[in-house]
C-alpha cells in the first residue's frame, strides 16, 4: 500500500507540474512536449489502477499519434510571434481567468471536504484479466455494441467534414 501511495504521489507531481508547464511555457513546441510528459504520467496512473489496456491506448493514441500531429501543426504554423500579440489583446482575461479558476478550486475543495470520499467503499478483489484488452473487447462487442457502432458513424462524419472544409475550391 505504501509503495503504491509513493508511486501515486510521484506521478501526481509529474502530471500536475507538466500540465502547468504546458500553459506557462512561451514556446509552443515546449508546451507540446510537456503535454507528452503529462500524457505519459497519466498512462502510468492508469497502470497503477490496473487498467493496462487504457494505459497503452493512452500512450499509443495520445502520446503517439495525436501529439505528433500537434507538433507537426505547431511547427508548420510557426506561432512564436503570434502568441505575443495575442496576450496584449486580452487584458481583462488575464485577471479574470485566475479569479474564476480560484472560484472553481474552492468549489472542488468544498466537494472534497464534504465527506463524500469517506463513503467510498473498500477496494475489492479484481476479477481475473481485469483491464486487459480481452474483456474490454468482449464488452465493446456485446453490451456496448451500439455505442461502438455509433462511434464509427461519428468518425465518418468527422472525416467527410474535414475533407469538405479543406478541399480546393471548386
Amino acid at each position: 500500500m505504501i509503495a503504491e501511495l509513493v508511486i501515486f504521489i510521484i506521478l501526481g507531481i509529474v502530471a500536475v507540474s507538466s500540465a502547468f508547464a504546458v500553459i506557462l511555457s512561451k514556446n509552443p513546441v515546449y508546451a507540446v512536449l510537456f503535454l507528452v510528459i503529462n500524457f505519459f504520467a497519466l498512462a502510468m496512473l492508469y497502470l497503477v489502477l490496473s487498467a493496462q489496456f487504457v494505459a497503452f491506448i493512452q500512450i499509443l493514441v495520445y502520446a503517439g499519434a495525436i501529439m505528433v500531429l500537434f507538433l507537426f501543426v505547431v511547427m508548420l504554423l510557426n506561432l512564436t510571434g503570434a502568441i505575443e500579440s495575442l496576450q496584449d489583446k486580452l487584458p481583462a482575461q488575464r485577471w479574470l481567468a485566475p479569479a474564476l479558476g480560484m472560484v472553481l478550486l474552492v468549489e472542488i475543495a468544498v466537494v472534497f471536504l464534504s465527506g463524500f470520499f469517506a463513503q467510498v467503499p473498500e477496494a475489492s478483489e479484481l476479477p481475473e484479466g481485469f483491464g486487459t484488452s480481452a474483456p474490454v473487447g468482449m464488452l465493446l462487442f456485446s453490451r456496448y455494441v451500439l455505442p461502438f457502432e455509433v462511434t464509427s458513424a461519428v468518425l465518418l462524419i468527422a472525416m467527410v467534414g474535414s475533407i469538405v472544409l479543406a478541399k480546393r475550391r471548386p
Binding site: P147, V150, T151, A153, V154, I157, V160, G161, S162, V164
Partner: peptide
C-alpha cells in the same frame, strides 16, 4: 448517458461542418 453523449456529438460535429 453514454448514448446521449455520443449522439449529441454525432449531430453536433455534422452541424459544425
Amino acid at each position: 448517458l453514454i448514448m446521449i453523449f455520443l449522439s449529441l456529438e454525432m449531430l453536433s460535429i455534422a452541424l459544425y461542418v
